[in-house]
Design a protein around this nucleic acid. Structure first.
Lengths: 366, 366
DNA sequence: ATGAAAGCGCTAACAC
DNA sequence: GTGTTAGCGCTTTCAT
């Protein structure tokens, strides 16, 4: 092992103080960068602390003051690009404010609630951010542990929630497809316990109805925002007797699966099939062809979650309990007018009207 | 918010004791499931504790006893299937032993060392597992913080290390390809700071030489175990004047990128190109075609990391400082003998010059 | 089987 | 500016 003996105690503030010839309190002030110490003395103390390798004992600090600059984050789907992006933003904001982030991740969506974890997190952190769109129980456990909680896309908005404008985003995606001339549009929905999946689906329905088209239940396939699910769902849609000419996937990952299924079926995108995703994860621009999608400012949402939490901690209650971010339509290479040779219905002459980014209504937050 | 006032103190052991009419110490024994309390009294205490919602204050517990049943995990590439699998195994083992796992994740590979984090982790946990194959500095910082550390695939085996038999695994992959009759085999290596990448590459070289073939540097492309990197590397290999008939990718993710590149180039796998990966991540079996690969027992390695740590904590030093797991060749659908029509001959009707850049698609300005 | 005393390392609140 | 006095909530050790 290392050369240090396992039981080597770390130096305490008392030792620093003794070496510096000051009281423990003065040392504390210096080490914590607080006023009330002369520059002269402060430098001395800092130097000595560094020399003997002093680092604050957080357990003691927490016990004495009740605080520690740590934010907890519960999540799942660590492999999901959404989560990664979100955490990236959260970590950035935390860092800027001088906080650390501690993570707890579920391994499976339906893993049973572990009280131990919520307690651990609640005690190690001043507040926690919950990116568990389908689990209300964790929110409850955390709230019961008495720390402020910020949720992300939570179904029942208890406490503060960060989300994007799912409905208008999805609606815009559908309008794009409809304006291109598509009349049979498939939709792959996410897990029905997730609020965003429901919202996006509602927008799909409304958009179809708005244009006076008929809702065909066989055009809506279940999925779960994942690529394999998108693949399977798309394969089923494409095997329909009267297949869609476009597919609106509830998430970019699912859309990537659609692309894969289209290739496997020998279909060209966008010539034979148009595909729209949702999220604008980094991979979307890298896909073949690059994916037309609805962008949500994921990284910014992560930052906002932390800043909102910090505000709550500081006693500043955000104006609104739910902060909604606007979305943008990003037109790339996966959408085009339907192919008259393939399209089941009458070939329409299409005009790509909204070639630019459409922004859904901005909703005030923070 | 919740109905609890933000400053509502949680109940303490003293309160439980008072209500039960016993001393604080007896309550502590009961709550911690320790001997020295009569069944009668114990039940009483437990009931009361539950009623008033007592939960132990970990900071106080840690301060008093120096311990807390938590292990830390530092990692990066949360999105990588390897990491996910590994953590899954680690979490399982920890749970079984009654420990919790706390995670800290780097966002970028080269993020500068954050002392705060290592201190936080070292203090919140009894020991930590480091899945940072390319960062020696975190190991050092953690070791300096005086907690036992178990590393995974660490370059310099300082302390205890968990790894798989990279050399023999890669060697087996190459033998499989060579036995199939391939003579020009491409290789995509991982980040050169990662020990496993170096080992796998060494096996590639040795296998080629073993069969009396010539090492062609142009057949070895840099990558980083990721799918996009695999895609780019494969595209380059396939554009060679004398392209390989098989590619051994250093990781399954990279192999997935190879598959993608092959499809994009109109090549069939395995008829026109054989592909072998490494890892056997869950996606490997799901690929089109399913991927032939070298399996390493990732989940089991995660469990082993935790169990090794627990052993060290208990004062039982593992027999060897490095624990190596064996690998298996899993033959699926992505490998076959070389296609005589394609093999050997110089590049087909493919010009080396103007390949269109696939990544030049419009990306929205932030 | 139970309890009392003495801290763990730190900081808040108040002295000086 | 700096020091003193009290704990934070728990577990240890040693009584009983």
């Amino acid at each position: 092992m290392t050369s240090r003996s396992p039981n080597h105690r770390s130096p305490t503030l008392d030792e620093v103080a003794a070496l510096a010839g000051v009281s423990r309190m003065t040392a504390s002030r210096a080490v914590n960068n607080r006023p009330g110490v002369s520059e002269q003395v402060r430098e001395d103390i800092l130097r000595i602390a560094k020399e003997i390798g002093y680092v604050v004992n957080r357990a003691a600090q927490k016990l004495a003051s009740g605080g520690t600059r740590v934010i907890g984050l519960v999540t799942i789907y660590l492999h999901s690009p959404f989560t990664t992006e979100f955490m990236s933003g959260a970590a950035r904001a935390a860092r800027t404010a001088g906080y650390e982030i501690l993570l707890y991740s579920l391994l499976e969506p339906d893993e049973k609630l572990r009280e131990g974890v919520t307690q651990l997190l609640a005690q190690s952190a001043l507040g926690v951010i919950s990116v568990l769109p389908h689990r209300q129980d964790y929110f409850a456990a955390l709230a019961a542990a008495n720390v402020p909680v910020i949720t992300v896309e939570s179904a029942q908005a208890a406490g503060f929630d960060i989300r994007c404008d799912n409905y208008n985003g999805a609606r815009t995606a559908m309008r794009h497809l409809l304006d291109l001339g598509h009349r049979r549009i498939g939709h792959i929905i996410g897990n029905e316990r997730i609020a965003s999946a429901l919202e996006r689906r509602r927008a799909y329905d409304d958009a179809v109805i708005e244009r006076g088209l008929e809702l065909d239940p066989s055009l809506v396939e279940k999925g779960d925002y994942s690529q394999p699910a998108g693949f399977v769902a798309a394969r089923r849609l494409l095997a329909l007797p009267h297949p869609p000419t476009a597919i609106f996937a509830g998430a970019d990952c699912a859309a990537l699966g659609v692309l894969e299924a289209a290739h496997a079926a020998g279909l060209r995108v966008p010539e034979d099939l148009s595909v729209v995703g949702f999220d604008d994860i980094p991979q979307a621009a890298q896909a073949h062809p690059p994916l037309t999608t609805i962008r949500q400012p994921i990284e910014q949402m992560g930052r906002s979650a932390v800043n909102t939490l910090l505000a709550v901690l500081a006693g500043i209650e955000p104006v609104s309990p739910v902060i909604t971010f606007p979305t943008d339509l990003i037109v790339r290479g996966s959408t085009a007018p339907p192919n008259p040779k393939r399209a089941g219905g009458p070939a329409r002459k299409r005009r790509t009207k909204p070639r630019c980014r459409l922004t859904s209504a901005a909703v005030p937050g923070q």
